[in-house]
Structure formats: C-alpha cells, structure tokens
Simulated assay, not measured.
Amino acid sequence: MKELLIASYDMEVGGVERSLISMLNNFDYKNHEVDLMLYSHTGDFMNLLPKQAKLLSESKAYKTFRMPIGKILQSAKLPLALARLFAKYKANLNHSHENGYKQLQYMWVYTLPFLPRLKKKYDVAISYLWPHYFVAEKVTAKTKIAWIHTDFSTVDTDEELDFQMWNKFDYIMAVSEECKNAFLSKYKALENKVLVIENITSPEFILNLAAEKVDSPIFQDSRFKIVTVARLSYAKGIDNAVKALKLLKQKGYDDIVWYVVGYGGDEGMLKELIKQNGLEDQFILLGKQLNPYPVMNAADLYVQPSRYEGKAVTVGEAQILSKPVLITNYATANSQVKNGFDGSICEMSIEGIADGIERMYKDKEFRKQLSHNCLDTNYHNSHELQKLYQLI
C-alpha cells in the first residue's frame, strides 16, 4: 500500500477544484492510502470530498494564505503578516494585469521560514495548485509531483525563483500537450520532468447534476442564450465578452442574452462596464453557484472568451452536455476542441468573439452538428490516472 499526500488550497468553487474532486472520486484506494492537505478547510466543494481520502487537520499557519493581512495581524502572527506585506510591496514594483501571481509567489518565499513541516513521510507527495512551495520545502517524500493548470508562457512570475521551485520536483504534470509546450517555452531545462495527465472528467457526475432543478432566470428566457462559467478575472476575458455583445447589439442582435456564472475580483469593474454599454438586460452576472450545470444545460451556445488557459475544465463539461462550444484562440485552444468538429475556435479579440457568435447564431445546422459530435464522443478519461499510478 503506497502512502500519498495531495496538497491544495481549499475547496472554493473553481475549475481546478472540480478537477481535483473528479480525480479523488476516481482514485484507486485499494492500492493507495491518500492523505489530503488543504491549507484552508473552506469552500462549497468540501462536502464533495470522498471519505476514502483522509483530510488532515487544518494548520493555523497555512490557513493565513486565504486571510487578509489585517486579520493575520489580529491573530498575533506578526512574522507572517510582515512577510505578506513585503510580498505585496515587491510584486507591485512591477505592475502587470496579473501581478497577483508574483505576490502569491513572494508570499510563499518570504513566509517559508515561519511555516511548519509536515512530520509524516510519504512515498509520493503531489502538489495540485501553484505555487508548490509546501510540497517542495515542507514535505518529505520519495517522489514529488507538481501540477500545471495554466498557460505559463503568459503568466508573469519571478522566473528564477519559479525555476528553483519547479526543479525540486521529480515530475511535473501538465493538463494538456499544449499546456506542457507552453510551460517548456519558459522552462526548457525541465523538459525531461514534464508529462501530460488530462483533467479527469466524469460524464455521469455532470449529467446527473445537470438534471437537478435550480432557480435561475435563464429558464424563463426565450432569447438566444450564451453561457460562460468562469472566474471573474483578467485571464478569463469577461470584459471582452461584454464588449463583443455590445458590437452584436449595434449590429441589431437584440435577442441575444449572455449569462455568466462565477465570481472574482473583477466583478465591480464588469458591472460598471455592463452599465456603461447599456447591457444590464443582456449581460447577466449570476454570481457563484455550487451547481452550474443546469444553467450550462439551458444554453444555446457555450463561450469561453479567455485570454489564456491550461485546459479549461468548463469547456470539457459543456461538451459532455452536448453544447455547441466557441472558444478564443488562446495558446492551448487546440487541446480543448477539434475546430469545426466538437467546437469552434475564434480569433482572440472583441471582434473575433462577436464574429464567432454571429456565425453560430446564424448557422443552426452547424450548432446541431457540433452538439451531435459531442454526444457521439466519449469524454470519460479516468484511464488517465494509469499514468500517475505507473509513476507511483
């Protein structure tokens, strides 16, 4: 019986968390004893964790990563609070759209001396969400594995620090071939460590949840319905989606409505943008939802307007629900859909998104064909876990 540790942040509603739940629910517990380390025991997905995975006690020190600095000061953890303040200061020296990545990275680097080690020793330790400093520095294991969920060629990090951290792992798992290639464009020296394991998807789980009854205005809406499920952040391109819908409205498409399920730091900006463009009745933010699948299932078209992705979990879920899918041409787009077969790829611009939607809106037969091809495709891929078992 191999002893494994899997570490991540929390179980808030998100694509990475959904993929972790799928992996844990499809895991081989007959041959593996699994401990799960969550830095914070929070999030709506906590009750979806399988009982076979042993949830380790919450650590007060690691829980601070999900707390505001003021609250850390109140809890008398001065060194951790000062390290967080310095991380924020250093990240803000070079401002970018995603300087939160650098802040998170520096936060780990500067707090490491004040964080406890895990006493138990493991055969394998898996760090599921970047930055992977906990498993790299605070866990003893014969084999260490880190996961890549995003397109690292587009992410602004301190590359030297990042390389040192990645190099402490025996294997690095990318969720798609394109995700792997994007990572290696930045960290070529790590090529012999990087393998591909796709996000585990469970069609039965998604189809069952999609059949549940939920309360949403989308079910009474007779207009052409677009749905996006995403974090409200720069990476997901929801601001471009608002502007694309404005273009379509100017062209006379008044019967298109766009529903977005998700939450995040850009919510205030997006609400203002929707108001500025007079789209309050056509671009509707539904907020965080534990079960987004009934809303996805009600869509005439699923759109992923992202600026970059590793491999968007939600796109695969929309395909499982046999929805016609439109995604922007981000670097890893070809790992998501076979263009023209089970989805369509449009140019990554406001005009490109608008043109892609217009084509889908006009061509009902094309939408039907995409849906039919999705229905005929088997998206169950729990066999991907065999790659992980071989390494273990």
Results as ranks from 00 to 15, higher is better:
residue 217 P to T: 01
residue 162 D to M: 15
residue 232 L to Q: 01
residue 347 E to I: 07
residue 351 E to S: 14
residue 122 Y to L: 10
residue 93 L to H: 06
residue 128 Y to A: 05
residue 155 V to H: 00
residue 57 S to N: 15
residue 43 G to C: 05
residue 162 D to Q: 14
residue 2 K to H: 11
residue 19 S to W: 12
residue 38 L to K: 03
residue 93 L to P: 04
residue 250 Q to D: 15
residue 37 M to N: 08
residue 323 K to S: 05
residue 266 D to E: 14
residue 273 L to M: 07
residue 290 L to G: 07
residue 125 A to M: 12
residue 362 K to W: 03
residue 66 R to A: 12
residue 335 S to W: 07
residue 150 T to V: 12
residue 18 R to L: 12
residue 382 S to F: 10
residue 28 D to C: 03
residue 243 K to T: 09
residue 265 G to L: 13
residue 296 M to S: 03
residue 331 A to L: 11
residue 15 G to S: 06
residue 302 Y to A: 01
residue 390 Q to T: 11
residue 352 G to E: 03
residue 167 N to C: 09
residue 157 T to Q: 08
residue 358 E to D: 13
residue 300 D to C: 06
residue 147 W to Q: 10
residue 374 C to S: 08
residue 33 E to Q: 14
residue 137 E to H: 14
residue 114 F to Y: 09
residue 59 S to F: 05
residue 20 L to H: 01
residue 380 H to A: 06
residue 250 Q to Y: 07
residue 205 F to Q: 08
residue 18 R to P: 03
residue 26 N to I: 04
residue 289 Q to I: 00
residue 244 A to G: 02
residue 374 C to Q: 08
residue 258 W to R: 04
residue 387 K to L: 02
residue 296 M to L: 07
residue 101 Y to S: 11
residue 131 P to A: 12
residue 182 A to P: 00
residue 291 N to S: 06
residue 304 Q to M: 14
residue 163 F to D: 05
residue 97 H to E: 15
residue 149 H to L: 08
residue 223 R to Q: 06
residue 209 L to H: 09
residue 230 A to S: 11
residue 50 P to K: 00
residue 368 K to I: 09
residue 342 D to P: 02
residue 351 E to F: 14
residue 149 H to G: 02
residue 321 L to I: 00
residue 229 V to N: 07
residue 42 T to D: 09
residue 143 T to M: 14
residue 227 V to R: 08
residue 244 A to V: 07
residue 13 V to R: 14
residue 364 K to M: 12
residue 296 M to K: 04
residue 243 K to H: 11
residue 373 N to Q: 06
residue 287 G to F: 04
residue 209 L to E: 09
residue 267 E to H: 08
